[in-house]
């Protein structure tokens, strides 16, 4: 035999061949026990589907929370002695305040008309001898801090008999929304961790069978990267197949539940997009799952004896 060896081949070309072979090996692993892999892949697909649905939930809570972040309106109930001219002057003064976005004066007649529109109050109001309502100035402050300082500044002034802060209940609702979003985000992170561990466990099980082969490969000069490569491709394949299955399942879910979701979103003034598939997310899920699968496979490859122990 001649002494020619493989060192003449370029390193890049050899690396390309090694990757090709690793991909073939990964496919071979998948084809060996299709039923076993199918169960693991279905489990992964369901986890990824849960992730997609959690993402929709997080979006809806974000949509629900957005107006609450802004709404901290103050209502200044003016003294009975304040007439329309004085009320307009006060409104102008408030509108000029940099902390105020919008100041609106509501006359007693307009206030009464609004109350009459409210369900169940017509009878009680019609029993009153006249219009007992004062002038009211409704302020939309720039932010929560502005609302607090405005209320502090105007409380106790002679022209103002009372100040209603609408921000308190909104703060509570906002806190509920934020907590729900945090819980959903936490759940989503747990699902991502679960997906990575599922792949790690599946790859670890497959690797047990090939321990003797890897020990031999190490003796003949395979590096740890060479030995890891087919399993990384296997993890990536797991992510790819499971995410495509999850996307198909998500489309079926949206197809079946679309009308009901549309009604729900309309009833709660939620984002109507929540009742339809979010295509960028569905498509983005595929590369993300490939990364998760690769990470899981990497985890499975971390703890193996080195060549000295296997020699």
């Amino acid at each position: 035999m001649s002494r020619a060896n493989l060192r003449g081949e370029s390193r890049l070309r050899r690396l390309r061949w090694r990757h090709q072979r690793a991909r073939k090996d990964a496919l071979l692993h998948l084809s060996r026990q299709p039923a076993g892999h199918a169960f693991a892949l279905l489990l992964l697909a369901l986890a990824l589907l849960a992730l997609l649905l959690l993402k929709t939930g997080i979006d809806q809570f974000r949509h629900l929370g957005a107006p609450l972040q802004q709404a901290h309106a103050l209502s200044l109930f003016l003294d009975e002695s304040i007439d329309g001219t004085a009320a307009a002057a006060l409104r102008e003064q408030l509108q000029d305040d940099p902390r105020v976005v919008l100041a609106q004066a509501i006359s007693p007649d307009a206030g009464l008309a609004e109350l009459l529109h409210a369900e169940g109050s017509e009878e009680a109001l019609s029993a009153l001898p006249g219009n007992p309502l004062p002038w009211v100035i409704v302020i939309e402050p720039r932010d929560r801090d502005a609302a607090a300082t405005l209320a502090r500044d105007w409380r106790g002034r002679a022209q103002v008999s009372d100040i209603a802060e609408e921000s308190q209940w909104r703060d509570r609702a906002d806190a509920v929304v934020r907590t729900a979003r945090a819980v959903l985000t936490g759940l989503a992170l747990l699902v991502i961790g679960g997906v990575v561990l599922l792949v790690a466990n599946a790859v670890r099980t497959i690797r047990v069978e090939g321990a003797e082969e890897r020990a031999l490969q190490r003796i003949f000069g395979a590096s740890e990267a060479d030995l890891r490569r087919p399993y990384l491709y296997l993890g990536a394949l797991y992510g790819l197949i499971a995410s495509v299955a999850a996307v198909v399942l998500a489309l079926v879910v949206f197809l079946l539940l679309g009308p009901a979701l549309a009604e729900l979103t309309a009833a709660f003034a939620l984002d109507p997009a929540g009742s339809r598939p979010d295509w960028p997310w569905l498509v983005g899920m595929i590369p993300a799952a490939v990364v998760m699968g690769t990470a899981g496979a990497w985890l499975a490859c971390l703890f193996e004896k080195d060549v000295e122990a296997s020699a």
């Binding site: 493989l6 081949e9 070309r13 050899r14 690396l15 061949w17 090694r18 072979r21 003797e212 082969e213 031999l216 490969q217 003949f220 000069g221 395979a222 060479d226």
Partner: peptide, 21 residues
């Protein structure tokens, strides 16, 4: 020798490790 591989595939092992075509 790896029992699941043919004689030829067993012999090919070092070449595959080296990334031979």
């Amino acid at each position: 020798l790896l029992p699941s591989l043919s004689a030829a595939d067993n012999v090919a092992l070092p070449l595959r490790i080296q990334g031979a075509p």
